[in-house]
């Protein structure tokens, strides 16, 4: 459903991403992982229509995207700059639904249902500044769920929360996307996270970022923070992705070459 064709972006003379090609199928969860400064965010912002790529195309369902595409939601890393502090959680989640032509009652019902799915039904009337970081990011996820996008972009969504909350949110994401059949593109610098969450892990090289690895993740579901992470397949894949991220040539015989 999403296709990137030779997507490139240059800031002045700095090439952030260079000819990225990627195809994402409907319902797939694809993690993009790469070292810091590899243009991950540039890639996501190009797809979201927040910047205009200087080269190449973004195709959604075969049609080139110009500006912010319809039916797309983003969960940003910095929830404090994405949730509006002058609105309650419920109002924040319901706000994007105004475009969907729903009346107030139905908007609130949909927002409430989404908050329930992320376990925040009791905090609907709270304001963002009354919540912990993890709760705020749950509200962001609820906002994306209520919007029912075809494509969900997540930009280091769990980068600003503590490790325990991070695991909870990873599981929450897996659970709700299985439930909604949503296509997700998740960007992270965390190798473990990419393997744990993704159906597929795409590795970007250092800037100018380009695809250096595209690995299917074949782990039995449903995934579990303890058991999945101790599986041989998980450990092997994590090492593989780790090597690619560090710019080493992948080698399956245990001998690494630089």
């Amino acid at each position: 459903m999403l296709e990137l064709v030779d997507l490139s972006h240059t800031y002045g003379s700095y090439r952030a991403i260079d000819r990225v090609n990627l195809k994402v199928a409907q319902g797939e969860v694809v993690c993009i992982v790469g070292p810091s400064g590899c243009g991950k965010s540039t890639l996501l912002r190009s797809i979201a229509g927040l910047i205009k790529p200087t080269g190449g195309n973004v195709l959604l369902d075969g049609r080139p995207v110009d500006g912010s595409p319809e039916n797309l939601a983003v969960v940003f890393q910095d929830y404090s700059r994405s949730l509006y502090p002058w609105m309650s959680a419920l109002a924040n989640v319901g706000l994007p639904l105004r475009r969907r032509g729903l009346d107030k009652k139905r908007r609130e019902a949909a927002a409430m249902a989404a908050l329930e799915q992320v376990g925040l039904a009791g905090a609907a009337a709270k304001f963002p500044w009354e919540m912990s970081g993890g709760m705020q990011q749950r509200v962001s996820i609820a906002r994306a769920l209520a919007y029912q996008p075809k494509l969900l972009l997540m930009d280091e969504p769990f980068g600003s929360v503590d490790a325990q909350t991070r695991e909870e949110l990873e599981d929450l994401t897996l659970r709700v996307c299985a439930h909604h059949g949503m296509t997700i593109l998740l960007i992270t610098h965390d190798v473990d996270e990419s393997v744990y969450v993704g159906d597929r892990v795409v590795v970007l090289s250092k800037a100018p970022g380009t695809v250096v690895g595209d690995l299917p993740v074949q782990l039995p579901g449903p995934r579990d923070q303890i058991h999945t992470r101790e599986l041989d397949a998980f450990v092997r894949l994590r090492a593989e992705v780790g090597r690619l991220v560090r710019g080493m040539t992948p080698h399956r015989n245990g001998v690494e070459t630089r």
């Binding site: 979201a48 229509g49 927040l50 912010s68 319809e70 797309l72 939601a73 983003v74 940003f76 910095d78 404090s80 700059r81 994405s82 509006y84 609105m87 706000l95 994007p96 105004r98 475009r99 906002r143 919007y147």
Partner: peptide, 20 residues
């Protein structure tokens, strides 16, 4: 900028961007 980018991604109307 984060507030405005959120509004853009979720395609708020011009009125909503101003008013809300």
């Amino acid at each position: 900028k984060g507030f405005l980018e959120t509004a853009r991604v979720f395609q708020f109307s011009r009125y909503d961007i101003l008013r809300r």
